[in-house]
Design a protein around this nucleic acid. Sequence first.
DNA 1: GGAATATATTAACATTGTTAAGTATATTTG
DNA 2: CAAATATACTTAACAATGTTAATATATTCC
Lengths: 217, 217
Amino acid sequence: MGIKERKERHKGDLKQLILDSAKSLFMKYGYEATSIRKIAAEIEFSPTTIYLYYKDKSDIAYALHREGFKLMAEKFSALSNVEHPFERLKAMGRTYIQFATENSDFYELMFIMKEPLDFLDTSCSDNQEGEEWKEGANTFIPLLKTVEECQQYGYFKGQDPKTFALLVWSAMHGMCSLTIHGHLDHMCREKLDLFENGKQALDAAYSSFIELLGNMK
Amino acid sequence: MGIKERKERHKGDLKQLILDSAKSLFMKYGYEATSIRKIAAEIEFSPTTIYLYYKDKSDIAYALHREGFKLMAEKFSALSNVEHPFERLKAMGRTYIQFATENSDFYELMFIMKEPLDFLDTSCSDNQEGEEWKEGANTFIPLLKTVEECQQYGYFKGQDPKTFALLVWSAMHGMCSLTIHGHLDHMCREKLDLFENGKQALDAAYSSFIELLGNMK
DNA sequence: GGAATATATTAACATTGTTAAGTATATTTG
DNA sequence: CAAATATACTTAACAATGTTAATATATTCC
């Protein structure tokens, strides 16, 4: 049974063990295939034990959602070295695309799926309005700062930085989500001579976007 | 049982009846809640009957997906009257946003969910590569044409029209999907004084986008 | 009328998330 | 030390889900 070993852990670590198992299943097979029961089987506990540590599946989804933001923060941390804000903005865009395409399951959990945010609304808070989305805001702020710095260098004149940062994010998110969900790939199959494939379309759109931003000086 | 009435229909109409029922359930309760069994219950047939007319659930998802594009085409049909291509482009953007926010379930099925496109890949075709996505391409082409017409009026100089059209679509899709999934709403709950709410953020980003495009002349 | 075909159903399988009730084990209390 | 309590976990079950195989019931054709 392997009962002995597992009992040796300090209590409370089980919450982390569940999350680790969920994460590993999630990264291997995706979110849909990561059922409570499979997590339980992997850590050799009964399914109901999970409910002692997580309120429901959206709770686990939110925990994985946070893991995704941790991973993304790592990738972005290197970019603070880039002095010139517009160069940094470009690097952020490339990093964002790379993260989205290489960790598409995480990307989905972070920016597409409703389930993690559902947890914020229904389970996590006493607030009637639903809880705030810290991870999202904490990712948006560096973008906003960079946009503001760009403006000090003469870029994006007369633009409201918040709105402009949102526009930049939207464009990036749009490209990435259309790509990782296969919509661009499928459209390229039409004999319209549009793009070779989805990834190539994404790269072209990104280059075009950067050029466009670079001309706003 | 109401058996008599239902038998009065011509055979073959059942496929349409299933779709109508699926559509009505889908529009009322969303995709997740629209189960094969509930569709069957509503039309007073057994669940397995559905499988005589649709291969699996992704087949139904794709049929609804097509219904969504039909609905969208209706909304867009009026815009061919707009003479000036840039005015038309702006109107297309507004219409796109309106469609996405007022028919968010359809929007999701058309541009976000993987299930309808899964059907193209796995069930619908003998092609190894997966079938082409006609609906997407047919929606993209009018945008592409409008972008090309704009270029004849001096807009978007030097831009590759296909890439630029994709960029425009990506930006619109990004805004809309972040909005209808509640990400913008949740971010606005942070006390960062960003935007009032998601919808207001969307409108601001769109205005900013249009202004940006208008300056590319 | 009997055979062939089209159409629909019953029953079942393997999943899923989730809850209520029960059972050990450990800890505290008298 | 023995009893009461709290902690940690499990068993069993419910109500759904998509899906398939086997079966029944009409309808059509010869």
